[in-house]
Amino acid sequence: MLELSLGIILGCCALGAGAAMIAGIGPGIGEGNAVAKACEAIGRQPESKSEVTTTMLMGCAIAETTGLYALVIAILLIFVAPGRLVNILMNTLGK
């Protein structure tokens, strides 16, 4: 029984981390759009390259935030959650 519980905990943490990273799709598409538009803008007005690049990088960084939230959740699920959950399990079994 204990082995089964441990297996479920570890497996579900890994699955959850993988599922959380599906959020990487959003920033990928968004940043791709931003860079495409920036390329178009530079093609139209090559003299404004530096300003467009700076603004694009800022926008990309902000668009990335949602992906990074997912990343933080995934990292917590992989490195932190299993230990805590196993602790909780051990405490409840010990009672």
């Binding site: 960084a61 935030t65 933080v72």
Partner: peptide, 16 residues
């Protein structure tokens, strides 16, 4: 929160 996560997440994900 988003400022901290952005900076930390980028550097950390690079290391990972």
């Amino acid at each position: 929160i988003s400022m901290a996560f952005r900076h930390y997440g980028n550097v950390m994900s690079g290391a990972v």
